[in-house]
């Protein structure tokens, strides 16, 4: 959860110190927000390079907004997620339609290195995420990979909590269907 690390009021206090040119406050907010936004953007876009651009731009907008920040409107982390979400949406709309491809999977017959298999499973999930409708994708990422609460996700997506629950449930069902055919190749038969 965003609030587990730093309460919203503490984030706002850090932002006020950034305005006063306190570099340690800028570092603290960066460490709190930027890694999460980078992960979110990378999974939304399927591109590490584009995710870095989005993260840098979203944080830059936070710094620019800092002098005019109004406490109570939103937590800085939530606000940055919203900006990153819009930036991702813009990039996705400018793209040509793409067909996500599942990555090459290690051959179970050759023996399974646990780390290789974990990497393959992660890549398979990321590829399957790109096959979800955009809103389901972001709900699943924020809920099940970033661990945000439903109210926090609702604040970022600007929808009700019930809508978040519905998006998450539908997204998980679809992911399960996409990945069903990969379970054997990804070593699940041996796990069970």
């Amino acid at each position: 959860m965003l609030q587990d690390v730093t309460e919203g009021s503490e984030q706002a206090a850090l932002l006020a110190r950034v305005v006063a040119r306190d570099q340690s406050a800028a570092a603290a907010l960066t460490d709190l927000i930027a890694p999460r936004v980078l992960r979110y953007a990378a999974r939304m876009l399927g591109s590490r390079e584009e995710a870095e651009d989005v993260t840098q731009e979203a944080m830059l907008r936070l710094w620019k907004m800092a002098p005019d920040w109004q406490a109570g409107l939103a937590e800085p982390a939530t606000w940055v997620f919203r900006v990153a979400r819009n930036l991702c949406t813009d990039r996705l709309r400018r793209r040509k339609p793409m067909v996500p491809e599942l990555p090459d999977l290690p051959d179970p017959a050759l023996g399974q290195d646990a780390r290789l298999m974990r990497t393959a499973r992660a890549r398979a999930l990321e590829a399957a995420l790109l096959d979800l409708p955009e809103r389901q994708r972001e709900a699943v990422i924020l809920r099940h990979l970033e661990g945000l609460s439903n109210p926090e996700i609702a604040a970022i997506l600007m929808v009700g909590v019930e809508a978040v629950e519905s998006l998450t449930a539908r997204g998980k069902r679809r992911l399960t269907a996409i990945l069903a055919g990969e379970r054997e190749a990804l070593g699940f038969e041996d796990d069970d």
């Binding site: 890694p35 995710a51 993260t55 840098q56 944080m59 990497t119 399957a128 099940h144 990979l145």
Partner: peptide, 26 residues
Amino acid sequence: AFLEAARAEAPQLSPGLRARIIGQAG
């Protein structure tokens, strides 16, 4: 298991990007 793997393999904020972001708040 897929979610666990994806969490473990998540991209990390590179030191260079971190420095650029903090530098922009200068």
